[in-house]
């Protein structure tokens, strides 16, 4: 899911950086001080999720948890994911410092989208909340793969083919994450409903 250094051309990198900058700035502005512990913990959850690899086909896909972050944080998912990606790039060379913008946008934007689309469902009954969590968690990943395909459009040429392989590769992961997100949401609804507000 992380695009490595040297793959993308300068305009793509630049566009990604600007979009992410806007997202991060917006997110930072919207965070309330008392929410920061939550953001920090979810940030590290995202950081670790990338190490859980599920072998599929020629390469391997890993968990993202970006849907969960989006559902719980809204726009704050941007800075949260950004911090985690910086450390992944610095410590493990996942992605890279130049592609940080593109990677952040590709993973955080679907999170924010699912926040706006499925937030309403979370306030309903338990089953609907689970459904909202499942859809938010799985669709965030699939939209992220589409964003990644768009970013790679220039390098890989065949967009449809690439998008299909990426989506197919991440489908199992999307389902797993949907279930995880659904359970987390229903649990939170039980013990701390205001966290989903």
């Amino acid at each position: 899911m992380h695009i490595s250094e040297g793959v993308l051309s300068a305009p793509v990198l630049f566009a990604g950086a600007i979009l992410s900058f806007i997202g991060v700035a917006l997110g930072l502005k919207k965070i309330k001080n008392e929410d920061i512990p939550k953001v920090a913990v979810l940030s590290s959850a995202f950081f670790i999720a990338s190490f859980i690899r599920v072998p599929i086909g020629p390469t391997s896909a890993h968990l993202l948890l970006n849907g969960l972050l989006g559902m719980l944080l809204g726009w704050s998912a941007f800075p949260s994911i950004f911090v985690a990606l910086v450390l992944q790039a610095l410590l493990f060379q996942f992605g890279g410092l130049t592609t940080l913008g593109v990677n952040t946008f590709a993973m955080a934007m679907p999170a924010v989208l699912s926040y706006y689309i499925f937030r309403g469902l979370l306030r309903r009954s338990k089953n609907l909340a689970f459904l909202g969590g499942f859809l938010g968690g799985s669709l965030s990943i699939l939209i992220a793969t589409i964003f990644i395909s768009i970013a790679l459009l220039e390098t890989e040429k065949s967009f449809i083919g690439l998008a299909w392989t990426l989506v197919a590769m991440h489908l199992p992961i999307a389902i797993i994450e949907g279930i995880i997100t659904g359970f987390v949401i229903t649990y939170l609804k039980k013990v701390k409903p205001e966290a989903l507000g």
């Binding site: 959850a45 999720a49 990338s50 190490f51 859980i52 391997s60 996942f94």
Partner: peptide, 22 residues
Amino acid sequence: LILTIICLQLFLFFSSLVYAHK
């Protein structure tokens, strides 16, 4: 809850399911 998720992930780390794809 989230700390439990992290711990679970660390557990999975030991079961060698880990490593992203650099």
